[in-house]
Amino acid sequence: MKQLLKLNEARTSLKQWLQPIRKSERSDRMQLSASKAAFRVMVQKEFSDHIRSWRFAILLAIIVLACIGSIYSAITALQAQGSGSSANSFLFLKIFTLSDGTIPQFTQFVAFLGPLMGIALGFDTVNTERSKGTLSRLISQPIYRDDFLKAKFTASLLLVSIVIFSLGFLVMGLGLIVIGFPPTPEEFIRVLLFLLMAVVYVGFWLNLSILLSVRFKQAATSALFAIAIWIFFTVFYSIIINLVSNAILPDQNGTTEEIMRYYNQMDLLSRISPAELFGDITTTLLMPNVRSLGVLTMEQVTLALESPLALGQSILLVWPQLTALVALTVICFGLSYYWFMRQEIRARS
């Protein structure tokens, strides 16, 4: 009996000792759920801001027009090619990759306009809030500073993925109606993967522009800077690569090793550009006949069967490119996080 009493005593004392800890734990947890709720509220607000904005409407209009144009071009090309060609396999994917030469194909449009969309949604995320004086008001609310950045990114990425996926499905549906040829499950998965990659790609540009908006206090500066980077990679980078390529071109009578080294170097250089990475990804995913992204020697090609790659193999082939794209995105986010967390936030500074 006495022992029982003692035990009880010990238990109550333990409870008393634990109580403050539990309490603080509970308040921590409450805070955590509250901050999660705040995060959701921020994402909602940003999302609705984007949807209401003129800029988004204009972008959407441009992209939709481009897509319709590209489908038209792909379908004319398909009809011209006729059904007799040997490329009947993966016919459905050709809606995305074929062009009659007048208007670029769908993938090119995405590769070209996607970055613009990312930049347009991101270039003024932080600096406009700062210059309008809403940032200091917002940051003095009980939210984590990084939640603010994350919410901005999440809302924009959500919007981007909705736009890209709905466009992709729209193109698929239209193609289905026009060519009357249903996709195989593999083709469908390939298209889905392609759309996913497009989201990742636009996500990179979005993050880059958010980074610039943290860094530059003027929205115009960050927009110009982002566009400059975009133009550099889409236009000038290939020119520079060409120059370099001419400069280091090995002798025609060079050994196989020399020539291989040259090609590998050129590949490496061109893959610094995120546009090139995305290009590699789309080619591999939407054209299963592409067997390698680098050079192949005659030795490797002889006796190889002229057959498309299996889906798994295609994914394996673009895995490094995908990793690089995600890594670039993460680096941008990390940098903006680092700068933003250390910045002093004053009213309208």
Binding site: G133, T134, S136, R137, S140, Q141, I143, R348
Partner: peptide
Amino acid sequence: KSKVGYMPDDIGFY
């Protein structure tokens, strides 16, 4: 921040 209200000078709204 959940218990302290801060009104910056030149406050900004959306």
